[in-house]
Nucleic acid binder design. Sequence first.
DNA 1: AAGAGGCCCTGATAGC
DNA 2: TGCTATCAGGGCCTCT
Length: 287
Amino acid sequence: MPELPEVEIVKQSLVKKIKFEKIKKVIVRNRNLRFKIPRNFEKFLKNNIIKKISRFSKYIVFNLSNGSFFIIHLGMSGTIHLIKKNKYNKFTNTSFYSSSILPVKHNHVEIQFEGLKIVYNDPRRFGFFKIIKDKNELLKKFAHLGPEPFFRSFSLKYISRYFKNKKKNIKNFLLDQKFVSGIGNIYASEILFFCKIIPSREVMKLSTNECKKIIYFSKLVLKKAIKKGGSSIKNFKNTLGNEGLFQKEFKVYQRENLSCLEHKCNGKIKKRFISNRSTFFCDICQK
DNA sequence: AAGAGGCCCTGATAGC
DNA sequence: TGCTATCAGGGCCTCT
C-alpha cells in the first residue's frame, strides 16, 4: 500500500479524527514489528493528548502533549483502521483506508481514545512504531532522508550534482530514500513513463532537460495520486468507499503486455526486475 | 564509496 | 485437493 500519497491520505484522515484526542489506553498484541515495540510503549503514550499529526516521507509523526513524539511507518502491508463506538457504546467498524472491514488477524496495536480507537493491522510486520524523545532525536531520525519531491531543495542543481559520475540507473535512484524520499515502487515506474525515460538509464547520462522532467513529473504524479486518494492495490473484498482511485490511472504499473497509453505509440508495456523490484515501462516511447 | 543482493514476514495466486 | 514456487506498495544490513 503505502508510498508518500497513501501515507498522506492516512495522515489526513487521522488529523480529522484523532487530533486533540486524549489517549486512554494502548494495547499491544504483538511487539515483533520491524523493530520491537518497547515494553514501556503503552505507559509512555497513555494520558497524552495528540497535539499534532504530520507526515514526512512515508512516516506519520504524532506530537504528544508531554513534548515527545511517536512515529509510525506502514512498511509494505500496514493499515490503520478507525473503530467508533456506536450509541450503545460498542465499537463498530469503519476505516480510513483500504478496507472498511477490520481484518480478523494481525491487529497488532490498538490506541483507544474517548469514543473511538485506531487499530494498526500489518500481516507482514514490516511496519513499525517508534517513540522519539524530543525534537533533536526526531531530526536525527530523519537526517538520512533526502528531500521530498515537493521540496524546493529537490532542484536541478541538487540532482545534477547527485547524478554526476553515478552509474546506477534512474529507477534505483527514485527508490533511494537518501536521494529523494517518498517515492516507492509504483510511482517510480509511473513517473519515468511521463518523463519518457527508460528505467534502466544510467543517471550520469541524463540530459538537463530530462533532469527537469524528473523534478516536474515526480511532483505531478504524487500530487495527482494524493488528489485521487492514493492507490489501492490488492484490495480486501467488501471494500465500501474510502479506497484510493489512483490505480485506475496507472499508465504502466501492472500493465504488462497491454498497449502503451502514450498517444500514437504502438508499444506494449514490458515488465523487468530491477534490483529485485518489478518495473514497468514502454521500450518504444521511453528512451 | 558506490552498488548489488539478501533478508525480515505472511498471504494470494499460479502451476503441477 | 494439496503441495511448492513466486511475488507483493519498504528499508536495513552486509559484502565486494
